[in-house]
Computed example of a mutant assay.
Amino acid sequence: MSVIPLTAHTPTRSEPAFRGRIGSDARSGHYAVPGRYRLHLSTACPDGLRIAVTHSLLGLGAVCPASLLPALPDTPEGGHAVLRPLYEASAHRYTGPAAAPVLSDDWSGRIVSTHAPDIMRDLAHRFGGDGPSLYPCGAESEIEAIERMCAEGIEDAAQRAGRPGGGQEERDAALAKLLETLGALDRWLEGRTYLIRDEVTAADVELWVALVQLDTVHRHHLDASAVQRIAACRALWSYARRLTAHPAFGRHLDLTGIARRHHAHCRGLEAAGAAVQILDWAQHAAH
């Protein structure tokens, strides 16, 4: 798949506080042992949703249990109180938010990682077992390209297109980038079931979560005309509909939680596009 060149900008994902990795043997420190690690996730958060879908696709419920957190943080600094002991045990005098997602080590009571891409890769590479090959050999560069397209060409572009503080020229350029990215993906998906292989991969997880965010969050700040142009990418939204019907995807959709999280963090003004829902996510997830 050819990748659209994307302009440089500030990443939408914040820099993680912890970047440990699960290794292949005892020399790594965090070596792969079933039952040793635990996930702490809020599926209302995009990174939490990505990890939850990956976890389900790999069938790791018993190997690496997952604890689900509320949609909204419950501490003044924007973290989860239940995660505070993990953060304090992992960093001396830690003063930042005890934020999710977290991969923790039950043996030490400390955090391994808060970096979603690393967590997803380690789950797949170290505990994948009989699940699908989410990071197939030779596909890493393609998956990384999709990650960039989703982060920059969809999520960041959609945010900038609906940002009230910017000028009209900036918003128009961001919308053009968003439509260009969606159009390229729409053309690529014509006649395809999955994005880069004949079975589901991590690229599909990335794109599906980006499309969920686009329709449930970002469209609220776009005008109706823009949302109608986005909805015109029929192959793309048909693809999103198929994945939503897959149990590993649709059952993790917390639409109420996503809405609560959006309203708690949103500083923009609602536009006419808020009334133009592209997919009935709840209906497709139920099927």
Rank of each mutant, 00 (worst) to 15 (best):
R110V: 05
L185D: 10
A232Y: 04
L175V: 05
G153P: 11
I230A: 15
L49Q: 14
A81G: 10
A66I: 08
S141A: 09
A145W: 10
H9N: 13
D198L: 02
T201A: 01
W188R: 14
L189V: 03
R241C: 14
D130L: 00
A158H: 05
P97I: 00
G268N: 14
P70W: 00
F249I: 02
D47C: 14
A62E: 15
R38C: 09
D198F: 04
D122C: 07
H40F: 15
C150K: 01
I230E: 14
E199N: 05
D204C: 05
I146V: 15
S108L: 10
T244E: 11
L68M: 14
A8F: 04
L255G: 10
E147N: 07
R27N: 14
P132T: 00
R251D: 15
H221R: 10
S14E: 12
G153L: 07
A161M: 08
A44R: 09
P76M: 03
R261D: 02
A282L: 10
A99E: 05
V217P: 07
P46E: 06
H218G: 01
C233A: 15
Y87I: 06
L185E: 12
Q168I: 00
L211I: 01
Q213C: 08
C64Q: 11
V276L: 12
S113T: 11
H284T: 15
S90K: 01
A52T: 10
Q228I: 01
Y135W: 12
A274P: 13
L39P: 14
T193C: 05
M149L: 12
R261E: 09
S108I: 05
L49K: 13
G109A: 01
W281P: 15
P11C: 04
W188I: 05
E270N: 07
A210D: 02
H30R: 06
A116M: 10
G109E: 12
L222C: 03
L41F: 13
L86E: 11
P101Y: 08
R192W: 02
G162Q: 07
L57S: 11
